[in-house]
Structures are given as structure tokens and as C-alpha cells.
Nucleic acid binder design. Structure first.
Lengths: 204, 204
DNA sequence: GTGCGGCCATGACATCTGTCACCCCATAGT
DNA sequence: ACTATGGGGTGACAGATGTCATGGCCGCAC
């Protein structure tokens, strides 16, 4: 620990990542000491650079920011974790918190909240959008079982039952049963809507 | 026209927008004179502020960056237009060019290209990713008719034929015919795949 | 003015999808 | 021992979906 806050930035879109670095660079007490573009590079980077706070995007190649957060939390329990994402999906917030994140920010929040969140988590606070927190609580937990999620995820690209059965090593009937139960749990009328709703909630 | 290049920034996610502004602010010859968060606010902003270059995101509420570009091109033909987008979809590039854009950048390009592109368009150059240009040419033009696109777009959320027929004031048979021709043109096997492919190409 | 293409529609058909009832098996909880 | 719960499966059925042939209407190009 020194006088400036050392930040790691993980975000796959270079332009956004470097722009965020420029933004944080304007803050006198914050220093971006490392940048990575992939989720699976986060752990190595926090080991190499002496980092106080890791800022993680969720959608990244290699590993999601949430998975990376869980990894870092195990390896460096003291390090603060801020999830920064495009999509304010209730399910994302839930799993981010379960993986040990200290803050959850959406990218359409004012830019000032970013530096503010970095300082707050370092002071031991948690930073969560209250509206999103309410939505996450109202939605309840993910009602889908592991297999239902697998099938739904695989069905997302428009595969037929036969293809799904092949990919997942199941019979066509089983695939249809899983999709049917998922459709009922999500209270929709077909697989396409089920995929859409599950995505929106962050359950996929 | 003065000694610094005056830039308008249109991007709906505040954090990204302000971060990009910070990034451009580091360049001594560039000045961000206006920021908007919606596509339908672009025209008013270029009228109010004396802008040299407009930087437009595509996905925005109100109006897409491409639609906004066409508007601005008509109202202020001399103003340079840079499209900045998350998705390097060939169809996007094509329609951006048709709407009169001078540059097309994807957000996962290096940040240095942003300021560079701003200077280049002002010097009369066009800036286009060569790989993406090749993909756009290889894909050819959008093969879908207006109605096929309408139906496909409406079908994207998982609506049934009956619902589509109601929304579009068509008979169910007609809806099915349009979907069928779209499916054939895109060389896929069902509506879900058709929606996915059309989205990827930027044809929706 | 004779095509051609886009738009709208119908009816018939085969296949795909979603539902339901029912089955087996394993594991975890009471 | 009993009972959920989840995973995996079957067969039957109704309804949704995709295809095809065919027709009419309109506007535009040659």
C-alpha cells in the first residue's frame, strides 16, 4: 500500500479500456498499474502487479469478470473487486455478489461514480445500485436447474432438438422435456422467449 | 474553424462517453465541445455548437448513429462523421457508408486510432478497417426485402405467427411465407437462426 | 405492353415443437 | 423408511412451424 490507489483494469474493448484508464488517470489519487483484455489474464496480472482494486468487465473472452472475481477473491482476499458492466441484469448482480465483488457498477451510470466507487470499496464500503438491488431481490434466485440452463444456452443459437440432443448427448425427448420445464418456469410460450427472458435476467 | 478540432460525442453509456471525452481531452489539438446520449439529440447539438467532427455510436436510444449521420450529412454537408461501434457488422459498415460517414471504427481497435481518425477525416481521408471492408464486400448487399426484415425483426423476441400477424396486420400465412423466404435467403433452417444470422451481418 | 419483382393471401402438407403421463435411478433430507 | 428433487428416458398427442403451389395486385423497366 502506498499513497496512490493502484488499479487493474480488465475490459476487452481496447478503446473503452484505454478511455477508462484516461478517465481514472485524471484522478490524482488513482493510478492504473495494469490493463488486461481477457478474463483469464486477470489472476496473473494481480499477482505480478501490486494491485489495490481490480475493475472487471463481465463480458470478456477467456473468462467472465465474475469468474475472474471469484478466482482473485480466493488468491488475494484483501484485494477489492469492482464489477463494471454494460448490462444491469439482476442475475449478474446476484452472482457478482456471490463471487465476492465489493461493488457493481453499470456503464450507463455517471462517470464520476467510477472513481468514487474505487475509493469507497477501499474504505470498506460496498457500492451497489439500489434499483438494481431491488430488482435482483424481487426476481428471486435463478429457478433453472443446471441442465435446463445447459439446454437453453445450447438452444440459443437456433439449434433444432435433434442437434441439441447430439451436442448434449441426450435423447430428443429429454431435450424437449428440459425446454418444456424451462418454458414453464419462466412463464413464457416457446424456447425463443425463454432464451430471451433468461438472458435479460442474467440467468443464462 | 479555429486551431483546435471541435468534436461532438454521441454515445448512450455515460461512463463510456465521458471516458472517451477524457481520452480525447488528452490530445492538445482536439476539444470535445458537446456530448449527447441519444441519437435524436445529435442534430440539435451540431446546430448549437460549432462542430468539426461528430463521433457517433450506432446503438443509441431515439435514433441510431447511422440515422443521425444521414440527418447531419443533409443539414451540414461539410461536417465530418465518424461512426464508432461495438459491433463490427458488415451490414453496419455498408449502411454507415451509404448514410455518408467518413470513418468507421470498432471499439476494440486501439484507442490511438480514435484521435488519428478524427485528424484524418478532417484532412479529407476516409478511415475504414480493411478487414471489415472486405467482409462487407464479400457478404454482398442485404438480400432481404423490407417486409422480410420487418417480419424477422418482429419475430426476434419469440413472438408466435399469430402475434406477428396481429402486430403487422398480415395473415398468418403471409407471415409464414416471409419467414420462409428469409430462411431460404439466409440459408438456415428456422426463424431463430435467421434472426441470429441477420443480426450478425447487420441486416436487421 | 410485356415482363419481372415485391407484396399479400390461401390451402394443403410434412415436420418440428411443446405438453403430458409415466417410467427408472441416484442422492439428500426427515 | 419415506419423500423430495434432479437427471435421464419413452410414447402419444395437439398445435405451431416451414414448405410449396398457386393466385391476384401493383409499379417499374425495357
Amino acid at each position: 500500500m502506498s499513497d496512490t490507489i493502484k488499479v487493474l483494469l480488465a475490459e476487452d474493448q481496447s478503446m473503452v479500456r484505454e478511455a477508462l484508464a484516461a478517465l481514472l488517470g485524471l484522478e490524482p489519487d488513482i493510478e492504473v498499474v495494469a490493463q488486461v483484455a481477457r478474463g483469464d489474464e486477470v489472476l496473473a496480472a494481480v499477482r505480478e502487479h501490486d494491485v489495490d482494486v481490480a475493475l472487471l468487465d463481465i463480458e470478456m473472452p477467456g473468462k467472465t469478470g465474475i469468474e475472474a472475481a471469484a478466482e482473485v477473491r480466493r488468491a488475494r482476499p484483501g484485494l477489492k473487486l469492482v464489477i463494471l458492466t454494460t448490462f444491469g441484469r439482476p442475475g449478474y448482480l446476484r452472482s457478482a455478489m456471490e463471487s465476492g465483488a465489493d461493488a457493481f457498477l453499470v456503464k450507463d451510470a455517471p462517470a464520476a461514480q467510477l472513481a468514487e466507487a474505487v475509493r469507497k470499496v477501499l474504505a470498506g464500503e460496498r457500492v451497489i445500485d439500489p434499483t438494481l438491488a431491488a430488482a435482483a431481490l424481487a426476481d428471486g434466485a435463478n429457478p433453472l436447474t443446471d441442465r435446463e440452463r445447459d439446454v437453453l444456452r445450447a438452444a440459443a443459437d437456433g439449434s433444432t432438438n435433434a442437434e441439441l440432443a447430439g451436442k448434449l448427448h441426450l435423447s430428443q425427448g429429454t431435450v424437449r422435456n428440459y425446454l418444456s420445464t424451462a418454458i414453464q418456469k419462466l412463464a413464457v410460450r416457446n424456447r425463443a422467449e425463454a432464451v430471451r427472458i433468461a438472458r435479460e435476467k442474467g440467468w443464462l
